[in-house]
Structures are given as structure tokens and as C-alpha cells.
Design a protein around this nucleic acid. Structure first.
Lengths: 283, 283
DNA sequence: ACTATTTATGGTCACCATGACCAATAGTCA
DNA sequence: TGACTATTGGTCATGGTGACCATAAATAGT
């Protein structure tokens, strides 16, 4: 449920619920915005200008406003960070919520994390502030601020898993793409090589995954035989799934995420409102 | 991320972040506690004693306290609601967070939903309050309070999906169980019949799914040949997955969940603290 | 006691998806 | 022209799965 179940069968200690319930809980969203640039996985990150974690890279995000859902907040942040005018068609997926009490040393911050998948990566517009937003290679990341290492690792895991049984791979591709480009999505995210003929057979045998663009073909970076173009189909699930090779080769090394399951000692999330904002908040 | 990324590259409008950020956001957990009773899926629900949704059934849950994570809050609530002394071994999984602004008509409540899987269903201890907690058949539910229909439907979907590629089915079973009981977990959650020999072959062929209890056997409800007993194995994933029959027969009808993907107009979550709590809160 | 019924367990068989290959096409680059 | 590269088309063997059939071991009914 949401709030404490109505006043009823709560076999709970008589601690002052009400008082504590109104301690300031900040609710924010964090975005793991992923894209493919030059055949490698990139993440949109912003450089922190203030303590804590000044100078470290962090996931973009921000407060959930009083009149919007976390999903709406995430899409608003996505539009702001990427500078894209229309993010309505982009794949945005809620990952999970991170709520460790010490996530942010300044205050209690509960953050709903999302993963966003972008086709072509526009240069981030950097915002008007001092700090910069940039696409960084997923493989070459130092430790991020707060618990963002873990969030990013979770995002990568989720996307990798969803490639197996859904059609979201097309979310990384432009409106028209070749099967080679689609295959590269899988190879990049999974960190494994796939057999081109077998991949082609599988994709074309799945109804609704892709649909051919009648006469079109594209020169594949100059080299090789021109490839036919396809558009994303209408299907969203993959039956049967496209499982990644069992001979699990160690894929792209995650940023620096520590332990596998338990929340790592990395810290929480954000910081106070940007300097441009009216007043300063609990820090 | 968590809180708004530090004051930096946030290309965001200069709205007063700080002020709004400290509007009262209540953070709660909602629990979809599932179990199998007499071969049918049951959910732990509490009856609401107050408005809104007085008299309606709702998922158990409560506030996240200032010094605990949502996971800890969920496990605490689970222990309180079920009356079990040790819930440390129970399967608890975060579903997603529900944050529609109008979830609760009384105030802004953001709720982190969890699914919990119980082997044998102890009778709920009802709590000291007026309202009652009860196991109800999943198939015979009227509309729940707030958006709990949707949360419960999401929980059912998630559990059904996880049965395919994980070993959580054993979480519904007692420490020692027969393959028939394990199969019934799948059949009940999926709402389909499975071929006993094929199911057996698949389960036994998956290393670490189950391990036999040497000489043990149990009379299966009196009828039929006694079945061998097994314990849960150490594996947590199922490779390759155990896919449900494609000839999708309509399974157990969900409570009353409306649209498939978008947040339905159902409402939010909880209610004020229980009457026994010190003071009354925003209602 | 005998039979029907029920459930577990063991096994076969055909089919389909997949992985591992081989080969041809059609471009660029040197 | 030749080397190289990538797409595309095809074959072949294998493994997992679904659809069955058969037997064992218990109970319920007559």
C-alpha cells in the first residue's frame, strides 16, 4: 500500500507514527540515461560542484514536484538534461527505489531510479549552471557520487536482462536501422559477440520485432555489403526469449559497483538545489 | 540519483525548488503478501476502518520510519502483520514505487510496494485494533482501497514472471516438499495445468533447483503413490527458463485492475495512523 | 478381496529452436 | 585486380520441450 494502512489491524508499537511520519522525506528521481556511441555504452552524467562529492560524477535527477508523479518528474528531468524537445517516445523504465537512511549525508532522501534508453546521443546541453553534463563511457568510470554506482549497475543489469525477453533493443536504434546495428546493441550491452546469421534468423522469425523498409538499404560505414533497413515492430515481448550465450564471458566492467546484492557503503544522492535556485536547503 | 543533483548542470527552470521540495511527502511501504492455501492463491489484506475507503480491503503497509530503509520497513510490517517471529528468511521483493499525486486524497503519499512470498499461511494475528487482517482468495476480490488493485496485479504479474526464470517457487513451499506441491505453485500462479512428467524432468535437470531428501517420502493427501521429498537447492536462477505454455489460457482473474500499462485512476494508499497512535494525521 | 481411481515416476518420440558452420553477394580500400 | 569486410542465405547436428504411454503405489468403493 501507500500510506500506513488506515487505522486498523496494525499490530504495531505505539510509537508516535504521526510525528515521525512528517519528518522531512525528500523524494527525488535519479536517471540512468544510456545510449550507444561508436559501438560502446555511454551514460549521461553530471559533475557535482558542491559537497558532498564535489567534483565527482553523478546521475542526473531532481526533486519530484508536489503535483507530479515520479514518472513525470523523470521525463521532465530527461528532457531538461538531454535538451531534447520530445522525450515522449523514449523508453523510460522504473528500476527501483533507493531508500537507505544514510544515502545522503545531509538529509533523508528517497530516490526513485529510472533507466532511459536513447537512440542517437545528442550532446547534452550542459544547462546554464556551472557543472557540466557529459556522455561518459560506461567502462571507464571512476566511483560516482552517493550510491549511483549501484544504481547504474542495476540499470545495466536490468537492460541486459530485458534484451532477452523484450524488444527494447530498438530503443537504442534510430527510426531506421540495419540488423547489424541491432545486433551491436546486444553485443555492446551484453559484452559478447553474437553470430550474425543466427541473430538475423532469430530476429526475423519473431513476429513484430522488426519490419522491413521496402526498398531501402544502407552502406554499412562504407565497408561490406549494404544492409537492408528495418523499423521497430509493434511487438514488445520476445517469445521465445533471446538468451545470451551461457559461456558467460566477462562483459563490460561496471563502473565501480561494490557488493552484488547489499546496498554498498556508497552514499545517497543529491545535493541542495542548484545555486540558481531561490534558497538553499538542508545540506 | 536521489536528491536533485547537486547544484550543477541542471538546465532547469528557476522554480522554487527548495520550498516545494519540503512539502510533506509521506513515504510508505505496501505489501502484497501471497501464499497458497488449499491450492489457491491467497493475499493478506486488512479491512479499513476509516475514510477514505472505509470498509474496503487494503494491502498491509505503513510508514517508513526516519531511521530505516523501505526494505527494513517492509520486513518490519511483514512481521507485524503475519505475527511471524522470524521473517528474515522469507522472500521479499521490491516491486516498484507508486507516486501518483492523487493516490491518497488526504495527502501526498509515495509508496514503495513489495511482494512477499510465504510457504504455509499462518492465521494473521489481527492486531489489537478494530480492523481485521485476513487471507482472502486472490480470485474472489472486490475492488481494493486506493490503487491497491493495481499494486496487487503488478505483484501477481511479477511473481508469475519470476517463476519462469528463477527458483522462487520454493518460497511458497515448506522446508520439505514434493514435486507435486512445487508443480502446484506454478499451476496456481499461472493458472495453467502442467504435465507432471515433463515438469519433473525439467526441475530435476536444473542443477541446484531442488535436492532430494534421502529416504523420505510423503503420502500425497492420502491418494496416489507416495512422493519423494525435496528441499530447496542453492540455485536462484533457472537456465534455461521454465516458460509457461504459449497457449495462454486465461489464468486466475486479477482483482479488478484496470488498464494494463498506465497508472489507473484508482487511488493511492493508506490512511492515517491507527487510532491507537498518539495523534491524528492529515486525513 | 477385488477393482477403480489417483498420483508419482519412468520412458519414448517427434519437433523446434538454437549453435556451429559454410558459402555467396556486394560493397570499400590499397 | 585483389584483399577485406559485412550482409545474407543455407545446412546440419544437438538439446530442450511438448505430447504421449506405461508402471508403481497408495486409497476409496463395492
Amino acid at each position: 500500500m501507500t500510506a500506513p494502512v488506515n487505522g486498523s489491524a496494525r499490530g504495531r508499537a505505539p510509537e508516535g507514527y504521526d510525528k515521525y511520519a512528517f519528518e522531512p522525506f525528500a523524494v527525488t528521481v535519479d536517471l540512468a540515461v544510456l545510449t550507444l556511441r561508436a559501438g560502446t555504452l555511454h551514460v549521461l552524467l553530471v559533475e557535482r560542484g558542491h559537497e558532498p562529492y564535489a567534483g565527482r560524477w553523478a546521475l542526473p535527477g531532481g526533486f519530484v514536484l508536489p503535483d507530479e508523479s515520479a514518472e513525470r518528474a523523470a521525463r521532465r528531468e530527461l528532457a531538461e538534461e538531454t535538451g531534447l524537445s520530445d522525450v515522449s517516445g523514449l523508453h523510460l523504465e522504473q528500476l527501483r527505489t533507493y531508500s537507505e537512511p544514510d544515502r545522503d549525508p545531509r538529509m533523508r532522501v528517497v530516490s526513485v531510479a529510472f533507466a532511459a534508453l536513447l537512440p542517437h546521443a545528442p550532446e547534452p546541453h550542459g544547462g546554464g549552471d556551472a557543472a557540466q553534463a557529459q556522455w561518459l563511457r560506461y567502462n571507464a568510470l571512476g566511483p560516482l557520487a552517493f550510491d549511483h554506482d549501484r544504481i547504474l549497475a542495476d540499470a545495466h543489469d536490468r537492460v541486459g536482462a530485458k534484451l532477452e525477453y523484450s524488444c527494447i533493443a530498438t530503443a537504442f536504434c534510430p527510426p531506421e536501422f540495419t540488423l547489424g546495428e541491432l545486433r551491436q546493441v546486444y553485443e555492446t550491452v551484453w559484452g559478447t559477440a553474437l553470430d550474425p546469421p543466427n541473430f538475423r534468423r532469430k530476429v526475423l522469425a519473431t513476429p513484430g520485432f522488426v519490419e522491413p523498409v521496402p526498398g531501402a538499404a544502407r552502406l554499412t560505414g562504407g565497408r561490406g555489403k549494404p544492409a537492408a533497413l528495418y523499423r521497430a515492430g509493434t511487438a514488445d515481448t520476445l517469445h521465445p526469449p533471446l538468451l545470451r550465450p551461457t559461456t558467460s564471458v566477462s562483459p563490460a566492467s561496471p563502473p565501480s559497483s561494490p557488493s552484488p546484492s547489499s546496498p554498498t557503503p556508497s552514499s545517497p544522492s543529491q545535493s541542495p538545489p542548484s545555486p540558481s535556485s531561490p534558497e538553499g536547503r538542508p545540506a
